[in-house]
Nucleic acid binder design. Sequence first.
RNA 1: GCCGGGAUGGCGAAACUGGCAGACGCGCGAGACUUAAAAUCUUGUGUCCGAAAGGACAUCCGGGUUCGAGCCCCGGUCCCGGCACCA
Length: 837
Amino acid sequence: MTETAATQPVGGDQPAGYDPAAVERRWQARWEAEATNVTDLSDGPRPFYALMMFPYPSAEGLHVGNLFAFTGNDIYGRFQRLKGHTVFEPLGYDAFGIHSENFAIKVGVHPGELIPRNIDNFRRQLKRAGLMVDWSHELSTTDPSYYKWTQWVFLQLYEQGLAYKKRAAVNWCPFDKTVLANEQVEHGLCERCGTPVEQRFLEQWFFRITDYAGRLLANLDRLDWSESTLVAQRNWIGKSEGAELAFPVQDVMSFAGSATVNEGTSGEVVATPLEIRVFTTRPDTVFGATYLVLAPEHPLVDQLASDEQRTEVRAYVELAAKQDLITRKTSKEKTGAFTGAYATNPATGQPIPIWIADYVLMEYGTGAIMAVPGHDERDFEFATQYDLPIVRVVAAEGESSDTPLNQAFTETTACTLVNSGRFDGLRVEEARSAIVTELAAQHAGRPVVNYRLHDWCISRQRYWGPPIPIVYCDTCGTVPVPENQLPVLLPQIEDFRPDDSGVSPLARHEEWYHTSCPKCGAQARRETDVSDTFLDSAWYFLRYPSSDRDDVPFDQALTKKWLPVHSYIGGNEHAVLHLLYSRFITMVLKDAGHIDFEEPFTRFRAHGLIVREGAKMSKSKGNVVNPDQYIELWGADAFRTYLMFLGPFEEGGDFRDKGISGVKRFLDRMWKSVHDARRDGAADAEVLRKLHQTIKKVGNDVARLSYNTAIAAMMEYMNTLRAGERTPHVDEVRPLVQLASPFAPHIAEELWSVLGETRSIFDSGWPSYDEALVAEDLVTMAVQVNGKTRGTITVSKTASQDEAVAAAMAEANVAKFITGPVKRVIFVPGRLLNLVV
RNA sequence: GCCGGGAUGGCGAAACUGGCAGACGCGCGAGACUUAAAAUCUUGUGUCCGAAAGGACAUCCGGGUUCGAGCCCCGGUCCCGGCACCA
């Protein structure tokens, strides 16, 4: 390209060719120099926070999937800006966590050195993509000025009694000597080294997210989120309504206070009958409960075991403890042991044996179940295995109390109770409440709602994360680090590898580990666990607007103005954890009075996945797309536009190398059209009509993230614009440049200046359309005979049914098929006419 | 097993509320320009029959509702994703 080419007046005779690299370099420099993308957060009557989930800065650099998502968000942000909003589009890095740490261990470089390097590379790549990012608010979760406030968030939960410590099972890899997340265990083996994973019990920090289960679930109904994400959250929270029932244990007494699960009261020295509480969603089947099963970890197991059964029971408990958490939950084989004790079924009054088995999980319900083998598949399997009685208590129509059961009968609709004493004949739905009411009157039961959601374990026995801001003092106990002593800095240590001890590598660093008690000043020890990466990302959206503030986690006025986030975009792999934790933390901060809203993301859309030639991209398959290469070859504008064109944004699509050429051709034609455009004479009326139709369609499509069809509409307009090698008029091309600008921002800016404009196109406003012009005066309608299309007619858009029928009859091919009298006419104005003969 | 999403030309895909199936793009065929090629432009392109006009058949399979079904209902096959002994 020559120097003068870009500034060649419209109508100049020899427009220069389109050189994406030069154009993109020029405009990126100019945006930076003129701070085009820096948002004045204190200004702007119509703020719009367009957020994309921040990336984990991997060593491999930006993935094409990342870029797909970022571009999708950027287009939406740019569109909102053109629509007159003040748009804030920040970006940051989720750089703490096991991923970074494992990679650092692998290559033998300290993560503190590796991460800044990766971030530099990410920033370079993201900038090249031409995102409208306000880089002055960039953040990284690994920065002490950020994690200081992550620790502050922890303290907020601690102060509200929502953070607590308890012993819990973790997956432990004896070879890598590390705690593993559930996702890192495959078929009971460590995903990295293949060593069988063991279960270990460690003291860990938890957040009481279960206290918020009801609210987290109820609010979902009023969120404008992708349906699939809402469903995933509902399933994860897993509400189930049922009852807690009490089964008294025979001949075993206990001291009050230790007798029941979930009820730690005073230690009165009064012997009370021991009872087992169970949770069930089928209280209607209580007459069929022929035995009880406790989880092997249930606190009453040892007390219940009879002398002759004790050895067997202990062996089983030990075996269960050895098994890793994943295998236990996936192997369907039923095993268990009889405790030797019996309980009384409160409905039948009959004694039933108490068993332990690992198919019952301690962390759900009460850790104990009443087994109804007749009507539960798992119980049936277990009962068959151990020869326990199976009783039918529910019967379908045509069945009776003694219709044999050769498998569990789990149907409930149109079923009635049998073998259930005075409840016989009741429909299942009626029996549920009737039985609970009856048992409640005897203090043997109550209705209960249970959630599958567990409390959030945030402890990580690792190095690369924010230290949990807690100190242990021999006299003062557990002491939170005062806010003015934050951050608790993560020390720079060389041996950050985890070891066999089961505690964080930080514990090996005496000078860090030993500290003084913030309360009494005596010698004390630091908590050595760091917090979960998901805590870092559960509040980052609150930090962006205030990222330059050191004195507060988030400024009150800015937060009020900019939050909740107007549009959030991200991958559905975070449908549950990240999005749920963010909602939880937001609710907690609201309850603590720090913010005045409790849902962080007003609108959320999950983007799709990019595959290549039908297969998921992976390094091992060697089909990973490196964005740099494509941007080099085609330009960021073409690459962005192609990514948005290859499939629906919310579904993703197939990346095919050749596909990009069509999009590049489109940009080339737009370039040429603007340079060639004539100013003399008038614009063509029909072209203008098409233009207005296009403005309408592109606006509607972009608003619902239907980017692929928006691009198709622009291409279609381009075909009209250039049909028959006509020379387009300036008025015909100017709005097109605006429509294309969110997709291809650099070329749009360039062409905008070619059109004589001096300000950024992104301050030019979104073109409007004239509804009267959009509607065609003449419409082409399909004419069907008996539902088969036989021709078309062109009539006025206001044509009546009679006029349409007359026009249709005049068509030879239609008349040909009218073999008898027309019995019925279906007339859809402007669309179709169907004659039934 | 349960819960989502999906299956449309050679390929990526459109069709928003039941109304001309295949927009737009890739690829491919033909032509123009060129010494030639690339690029560009024009044009054709679901399948079958037909010179054409036109016709028949076509949205995973089998039924149904309707004047009319890719879309709604019933039954089934396959693919992708999530959860998974949750009582």
